[in-house]
Every structure is written in structure tokens, then in C-alpha cells.
Design a protein around this nucleic acid. Sequence first.
DNA 1: CAATCTTATGATTAAATCATGAAAATCAGG
DNA 2: CCTGATTTTCATGATTTAATCATAAGATTG
Lengths: 231, 231
Amino acid sequence: MKPKILVVDDEKDILELVSYNLKKEGFETTASANGEDALNLIRRDTFNLIILDLMLPGIQGMELCKILKSSEESSSIPIIMLTAKNEELDKVLGLEIGADDYITKPFSPRELIARVKAVLRRTQEKPAKDRVIKIADLEINTDTYQVKKRGRLIKLSATEFKLLVYLVQRKGRVFNRDMLLNGVWKDESFVEPRTVDVHIRRLRAQIEDDPSAPVYIKTRRGIGYCVDGEL
Amino acid sequence: MKPKILVVDDEKDILELVSYNLKKEGFETTASANGEDALNLIRRDTFNLIILDLMLPGIQGMELCKILKSSEESSSIPIIMLTAKNEELDKVLGLEIGADDYITKPFSPRELIARVKAVLRRTQEKPAKDRVIKIADLEINTDTYQVKKRGRLIKLSATEFKLLVYLVQRKGRVFNRDMLLNGVWKDESFVEPRTVDVHIRRLRAQIEDDPSAPVYIKTRRGIGYCVDGEL
DNA sequence: CAATCTTATGATTAAATCATGAAAATCAGG
DNA sequence: CCTGATTTTCATGATTTAATCATAAGATTG
């Protein structure tokens, strides 16, 4: 019962690199160099996961992702986007259009495998990933990037939003600053761990009734931050 | 407990720069100026990570990487490649031959540290089952940093928690104070061995029913402390 | 059953960590 | 290329936690 993974990329090197590493890990892979072929393959076969380059000729990766996510039969197939490092905006977009995760090029095989496994684990455990997360008085919409508190809209910056979603989706677990930088900031930047404090503060200032007695984001002194698992 | 890192580079400056920064972050480093020495060191000692210059005289870095990755006993050691900026193609190659990440020269110390930590975190991530440790009436969750005793939550400080986890994960073994300082306090902190007593006491006060007749953490007079192997 | 260890305890001091305000750097859109 | 917004860094003060020390209590040994 090897999971079947479709890899879509126009660069032959990347295609091979990805396929090689996935096979080595025991996955079954199919390769496609463009979006049209990919669509046909998906119609004919069922895949457990699709790894998709954002920048494809013809049907753009983004377009393909949208098509797949909007169609009933394919919307449940998880998608990992591959993006070039400086397509910064696309990162957000990649998730907005429904991708389940993304990896920035160049990437290490280990990161690739780790993310593939993580996504497969997530999607196999929970049938559908919630687009709207509700926690206490908060309502977080990962489609529209909006956060509402008791119905009132809260405006968060991109980083604040990602940080909040990251913590909420993993509520209960405590993360130290390095872990958060790794998870939320990814490998794009090398930021001082202390910077996390500032974002936590800004987040609290906006979502907490009383930032000095936070309900959502707790400080675990000497360890890091977490969203209470009880919420 | 300190991760051991082998740094291989023929440029003395780089070697020192890297070693210095790693040590400052609490890593233990060994330096090697060429591939042959590196191989010998790896055979004799076990490293948690290898930082490898792509361009080495003698055994090329790439070659060394391939050798290490193809051998059973060394293939699990993660490798970070150092590459000159314009060896663009080699980046991909570096990963193809099994490296786990790479850093382009010149690099900032911060980037170095961030990548080293990221790779170590990825490779040392414990499987999910080990994240909750159960011992007698205690339930220790290393994700949430929570300890429960017969279902009731116990609030431990960061040091207390680490000390408990350290002992429990090695139950049966007796540690003297210096060993505990080394293992739990990690970085080269200059702490009085007697300080351990105080932490043991505080830990007992919270997890033992009767701290004067401890069940979990036993005192081995003249030797040190241990968690009973029978639990 | 002292004498002499070693460990436990309580109180005090020291240190590490976090929150905060503000400035500098960076980014995105016009 | 400018402008406002966001992000990052830095410095400082508050707070919690940790480290130390003095002393009490408890073992061990001859």
C-alpha cells in the first residue's frame, strides 16, 4: 500500500531529484512535466499526494491547484507547492489557493520527505482540513485570511496571521522561539529569536482582551509559547 | 547531550569561523582540514552532524559526502555542504548526492546556526510515541511540557521538567551531580553541583506523595540520584 | 553511639527570561 | 522613487526562576 505521489515540474533536474528521493523512501511516483498532462493523469489515476511547481508553462501551477481544489473528486488530494525562494508573495497565495503546504527551492531531500510525510499523516488522520478554525471567541478563516473575534473583524499582518494559525493548529504543544522561526518563518530568513516576542506581543495586543493576562497565547517561561490545549 | 559537529574545510579561516560560532551556541566541534582526516575521525567517533566544504583538496567534499551517505553506519549522519556562491549547479548536485542542506559562502553566523539547528531538529525529531512518557502514576508529555499525576496537572518549571525527563528517560541509571549538570544544563554553565540538590528537592515536592520517602527519584547516597528502574 | 560524612531544607541573593517602547531596516504599492 | 506599513532589532525595566549558602537532618562507620 505505497502512497502514490504525482510530481509536476517542468525542470527535469528537479523532477528527477524529487522522484528519486521519494522512491528511496518507499513512495510510488509519477512524473509530469506540464499541467495538461498532470490533469489527465489525475483524471485517470488516483494519487495520494501531488507535488506541484508553482511556475509551470501552459497551465500555471497555481491555476492547476485551483482547478483541483475546486473539483469535487480531486479536492481532497493534498497538494504541496514548490516555489522559488523569492516568489515571496506566492507563498501566501499558494496556501490561499488551497495547497496544503509548500517548499521553497532549493530544498533538502530531508525537508521534502519530512513535509510529504507530515501532509500524508495529516490528511490520513483527519479527513478534511478545516478552512475555518474556531477557538474560544476567535474564528480564523484560512481562506480569506480573516480573523474575527465575537464577530468583529481583526486585522492581522501576514506574519501575525501565520503565527496564530501555526500555534492554533498545534494547540497544546509548546514551541520555543527557534521552533517557531523554523515553522512559521520557514528557511527564508535568519531572524533573531527575540523577534518572535515582538510578534507575539502584537498578536496578543489584537486578539487578547487583556494582553497582560493572555487567554489564547500563553508564555511558558524558559520554554516558549503555546496556545492552551484546553481551548 | 551536546551535539557533536565535525567541520571539514581546508581554509583555516572558515574552519575557525564556523567552529567559533558553533561553540558559542553550545555545540561541541571537531575540525578537520581534509577529507582523509575527516574519514578517520568519523570512523573513530560518532558525530551528530557534519559540515563539509564542497571544494576540498584530495578527497573532494562531494566525494566524501557520497562515501558517507553510501555506508550503512554513516549514512544517517546529516551533512551540511558549504559551497561558493557561484557554484550554482553544485547546489543541486550537493543535494542529489545526499547532503541534507547547504550554505553558500559567504554566510552569516546566524544563517549557519539557524541551518545547523534546523537540520538537527529534523533529524533528531523523536517519533510520536516517545512524546508521552508514562511511569507509575506519572504521565509526562514532552510536547505540551505537562506532567500529570493520576490525571491531575502538575506545574513544573523548565529546569525541573528537563531534569525529570532526563532521569525518567534513563531510569535505572544513577547520575552524580556533575553528570546531571552536563546532561540537563547542557551548555557549559558553571553551576555548583549542590544546586542539583535543590532542584531535586523542588521536583520531589511536586511529584512525590511524601517527599521524605520518595518513590520516583531516589537518592543513592555517595553516588547521586536515579529513577528506579523497576517503575 | 559519637564522629564524620552526605543529603535535605529554608532563606537570601543572583541571574535569566520575558514584556514593552521605540527606533531602524525592509518591503509593497502607488 | 517616495510613502506608509510591516518587520526586525535593540535597550530597558519587571518578574520569575535559578543558584547559592548556612544550617539542620539523616546515614554510615568504626
